[in-house]
Each structure stands twice: as C-alpha cells, then as structure tokens.
Computed example of a mutant assay.
Amino acid sequence: MTRRLGSGSLVIATHNAGKLKEISALLEPHGVKCLSAGSLGLPEPAETGTTFVQNALIKARASAEASGLVALADDSGLSVDALDGRPGVYTADWAERQWFEGDPGRDWYMAIGKVEGMLQEKGADAPRSCAFHCVLALAWPDGEYAVYEGKAPGTLTWPPRGTMGFGYDPVFVPVGREQTFAELDPAEKHAISHRADAFKKLVAEQFG
C-alpha cells in the first residue's frame, strides 16, 4: 500500500506561479495547502536525468529535503515516434534562446519548427504520431516516494493552428479530436491532457 499524502502542506517544486496555481486548484478539494519552492526560497536543482521520471524525482526530492515537507514535482514533454522519442526530456531546451539572441525566454515557435524540419527530412511518409507525457513525483523527507505517469497520444500537424495553448500545443492534435490543443477550449484541453491523466492516478491512490 502506497503511503498516503493526507491533508496539510505540500511543497510544489516549481518557481512558476502559473503552475502553482494550476496544481493548487487540483489539490484544494482534498484539503492540501500548496506552497511553491520559489516562495520558500529553495534552489532549483539541475535536471540531469535522462527520463521524465528521473527529473521529476530530482526536483521532488530536492524540495522535500530542503523544506522538511512532502514535495510534489512534475516533468513533462513531447515525444515524437519518428524522431526516436525526441525531444523528450529536452522538450523545453529545444525552445531555449541562446545568449546572443538577447532574450533569455523560450522561443516555442523555433522549437516547433525544429521538430517539423526534422520530420520533413524523414520524408512525406514519416509517421506523425506522438504523445505528450507527464510524470508527477511525490517525495517525503524520509526518502519514500511515489510516481504517477500520464500520457496524451496524438499526431503532429502543420502549419500551427490556434492561439489558446502554449509550447507545442498549436501543432498537437489529440487522439479523437480534429482541433489542436491550442484550438480547444482550455477546460476541454485540461480534461484530456497528459497532466490530467497523471493527476487522476495520483488522486485515486492518495485520496481514493
């Protein structure tokens, strides 16, 4: 039997206010008060793993050890079958601007174009199947942990469509839909997303 989280405070291993808000809303009905690693002044560990599970655990364990509280981290990304699972854990890195480009933010259109360019090099018959992945890792200060994996399968389209998503959403068409994630109503997207799939598993085991 997996250890139960229960009510109380939980550190979300992120410095992103948007992600904290999203996760807090999902856990609030279960009596969980979420704090961000950023608000506690916790450092961001280097994500040196080669899988989503490894990176999620690195972040969760670092926050749990530094805060003395249970911590939750997620790691997510896109894997493209014809590209041998890339960009995978490097999904965000493919959108990273270089220092000489002047803007330290992410250029997602550049990343989308890189994926499309690599697919074009494979030829017109290259499969366009792909999936978004999300791994949620819970870590307790004493070293115990639990992992939940979510997946949203789909295909890549070109050119990009829609304005309501972010990242690779404008080129991702989920299975069973004709619209991209960026064309879907946000509530509909969140209901079928890879993160929603992982959270359903976490809630079922931790609070079910």
Results as ranks from 00 to 15, higher is better:
127 P>R: 05
128 R>P: 03
129 S>K: 15
130 C>L: 09
131 A>D: 00
131 A>F: 12
132 F>P: 08
132 F>G: 04
132 F>R: 02
134 C>H: 02
137 A>Y: 04
139 A>P: 03
140 W>Y: 13
140 W>D: 13
140 W>E: 02
141 P>A: 11
141 P>W: 03
142 D>C: 02
145 Y>Q: 15
146 A>Y: 08
146 A>R: 07
146 A>W: 12
146 A>F: 01
148 Y>S: 04
148 Y>L: 03
149 E>W: 02
150 G>Q: 07
151 K>Q: 15
152 A>K: 05
152 A>Y: 01
155 T>I: 07
155 T>G: 05
156 L>V: 04
156 L>M: 02
158 W>D: 06
158 W>R: 04
159 P>I: 02
159 P>D: 01
161 R>M: 01
165 G>Q: 01
165 G>M: 06
165 G>K: 04
167 G>K: 10
167 G>W: 14
168 Y>C: 05
170 P>S: 10
170 P>K: 14
170 P>Y: 10
171 V>G: 15
172 F>D: 00
174 P>C: 06
178 E>H: 07
180 T>C: 09
189 K>Y: 14
189 K>R: 04
189 K>E: 14
190 H>R: 14
190 H>I: 07
191 A>M: 13
191 A>N: 15
191 A>W: 14
192 I>C: 15
195 R>L: 08
196 A>N: 11
198 A>Y: 03
198 A>T: 00
199 F>K: 01
200 K>S: 12
201 K>G: 08
